[in-house]
């Protein structure tokens, strides 16, 4: 499996560290209901198909990435910098 880092280019999967679902980018605001925190911390989808998760290019440029990939075909659809996704607003 190879991931194309937006900065470094195509690299071997061993250069990257897997963190988890991109739900971690949607942290509940201050004073959010306990249910929102429960969901943020513990509840994850387990899709057969497209999923989005966070990877860290730890052996490369040290950027955090959002990788959209298919759990069925292992196709990687897109790789974006978390910094770009966050700055784009949500």
């Amino acid at each position: 499996m190879r991931i194309t880092c937006p900065l470094c280019g195509e690299r071997d999967r061993r250069e990257f560290y897997y963190y988890g679902a991109d739900d971690y980018l949607r942290r509940p605001g201050e004073g959010a209901a306990p249910e929102a925190w429960d969901s943020y911390l513990h509840l994850r989808d387990n899709p057969a198909g497209i999923t989005r998760d966070l990877w860290h290019h730890e052996m490369g440029c040290s950027a955090w990435l959002v990788v959209e990939r298919s759990t069925i075909t292992h196709e990687i659809r897109s790789v974006k910098l978390v910094s770009d996704v966050q700055e784009g607003g949500k």
């Binding site: 470094c8 061993r14 250069e15 052996m59 490369g60 440029c61």
Partner: peptide
């Protein structure tokens, strides 16, 4: 230049 792994080293 590349930043990459040399064996297991950064």
């Amino acid at each position: 230049v590349v930043r990459t792994a040399l064996g297991h080293m950064m």
